[in-house]
Design a binder for these strands. Structure first.
Lengths: 213, 213, 213, 213
DNA sequence: TATGAATGAGATTTCATTCAT
DNA sequence: GATGAATGAAATCTCATTCAT
């Protein structure tokens, strides 16, 4: 800051340096926003995020033109990293049913303490269309594996499983403070209801909006 | 006050007169607030409610000294009327399992399109302690009836059923726009998981905060 | 209210009765307002006064078209009754100096616990011109008695005495909670400064606005 | 920070830059608030202050999170600068009695046209405990100087002098519009009553709340 | 480019006064 | 004439976003 400033030429300041700095800022913002959104939900004051990121408001808004953009970015990242981990875990699990179970556990573990995640999950069903598609595709895989192994109840759709994960996420959110771990019981109950031991047909759901098996 | 009232309908108006109007306003406010809260959640502008009630801000605040008071009143009313209806339905249903099923259906039907109701349900588990107690007591009855009839899976607690209802409520909220009625499938799955056909024990939940049953 | 109502002809309802009722209401309002203003100052909610009067807002506003009218009326009454009492006391006191002293004591005793009175006293120097004139005339009498008896310091004007009473009133208001009775010391000090033992001349005050002696 | 500053005026700006502007705004707000509070008392609309400062509401509230904070800051500043000046004047005055007199004059000169200052002075005896302590300590010094010189009436306490200053402040407030400068006469009277020429003992004040001296 | 101060529309709440019954 | 519910213009305070430095 003192003697160094005087010696380094001010004009060609290695654009990479800027980039790196900017990137670091961006990362810091996302990181901080992730924590803050998780703790306090989507409605937090943007300044809280700036403060925890260690950057100014201007910087924050340079990277994310809108609070919603920031939120979307953060949610998408968390969503994606969760999906990636889920993919890996599923790939490493031989037993189809265990893979399905593991997916749910991972999901809920992940969302138990993330307020914003659940809020957005609820609002739109997913942070973004793209993410939702990935998730659906993945869940579909898990489903098919179970179906092929004859483990899944007849007629259970991907949409059912998606809805179940949404549903349980929120239960976890709501209850984990007062009764930590209780959601595992609920998960078990639901999964048992999904098993092929249950032979009675499920009710038809009205074939309304843009649906798919 | 009893027999006298029936014989003398002369002029009981006096101070009742204005009361009636006020009562109508109060009702209008609650009505409008119910609609608005349901549509847009707890965070709506109070003025929107005043506008839709057809009353001024002052009137609204005369009846409900705080936005939260209004919200609480509305939620409590909806909660209570739901519980009452549920009671009646359960009393009229002989079969314990059908009673349980009916309770869940009624609950979800009721909450499918009420954003504020789900928001408060999530936040506190219920509009108010008192309401929650009633609900828990009622669910407990339903549970016991099923247990006595040997229909309920071993080890299922009232807390489990409460959590399930919370969980499903939110799923309904999230999904009913795009897939109306799909929740019935999820409900079926969950209930099947609750039946005594499932004999494997449920995982213990950490006996943390103020638990019961 | 019961049998009596039926026997008395409803048309010519003895206008006196109304009058009497209205008068009673008016008195109740003034009474309650006096208490409330004294306790909480001029800025109280009008409804508090209506409540304590036992009358409705409409009645209150029928008698006093404005909050300020009510305040003025109340202040004037208290001011007047204080002046009347002061007159009587002064008339009953032979010694001029004692009369002056007694006047101040009475004044301060009276205002020690009346917030609104001091507030208005401060604001305008008096509740109303008329009242102020009476007060000034009376204080002038007291002054002249002392002057004639050679007891009052040379050059002390009525305005000086008025200002002194204002000044002390507020001191009483401010301090009487924490140090009840301390004002008597201050009064003594001031009065000693007023005695003819003090021979040095007082500074001239700028002969500004509409002044008199 | 001392000698270095004088030699190197290169670029100490950096983060000071914006600070300076903010500081100017803060000063403008305090300045404007001082004027407005003085003119109209504590109850003014905050927006009036914002308007006169030339800043938006947000800026005002960034600097002072509450109207009361702003008021307290302003009052404290005025109180403190007054005390400082009083200290200096007293230190520069040899004669104890003249020092005491000068203190009162300065005080009243200062408060003659400041409504808010008198209002808070009345309400709490001072803008804040801390300030009051300083004032009391200072007045105590003045008192002791007079006592040591045998100039002060026997038994006069610091509390008496404090109350006197409060009392006169308000008198000034009330009367200075119509009779500017009249307070000097009242001050003279009171001070004469405080001189050791008066030998009669002062009445005891009830030894109530937290008293001293 | 980064900073964080500034902005100002809007949210909640109060209260003097009016008006339907 | 009495009642007290209704009114709505303020007043305080918040926060997403912009902008001067």
């Amino acid at each position: 800051m003192t003697s160094a400033d005087q010696s380094t030429p001010p004009q060609p300041p290695a654009r990479r340096a800027r980039r790196a700095d900017a990137e670091r800022n961006r990362a810091a913002i996302i990181e901080a926003a992730g924590v803050v959104f998780a703790e306090q939900g989507c409605a937090v004051d943007v300044r809280e995020i700036a403060r925890r990121s260690g950057v100014g408001m201007g910087t924050l808004y340079r990277h994310f033109p809108t609070k919603d953009d920031l939120l979307a970015t953060v949610m998408e990242r968390e969503f994606t990293s969760w999906l990636t981990a889920a993919h890996e875990a599923a790939a490493a699990t031989e037993d189809p049913w265990e893979a399905l179970t593991g997916f749910f556990e991972q999901t809920l573990d992940n969302q138990a303490h993330n307020r914003a995640l659940v809020e957005t999950y609820t609002a739109t069903g997913a942070p973004a269309r793209e993410c939702a598609r990935h998730r659906d595709a993945f869940i579909d895989e898990l489903r098919i594996r179970c179906v092929d192994a004859g483990l899944l109840r007849d007629g259970v759709t991907t949409a059912d499983l998606v809805l179940l994960s949404t549903s349980l996420s929120q239960a976890v959110q709501a209850a984990d403070d007062s009764r930590p771990g209780q959601w595992r019981r609920l998960l078990r109950i639901s999964l048992d209801g999904l098993s092929s031991r249950n032979t009675e047909p499920l009710p038809e759901s009205a074939p309304h909006a843009g649906a798919a098996t």
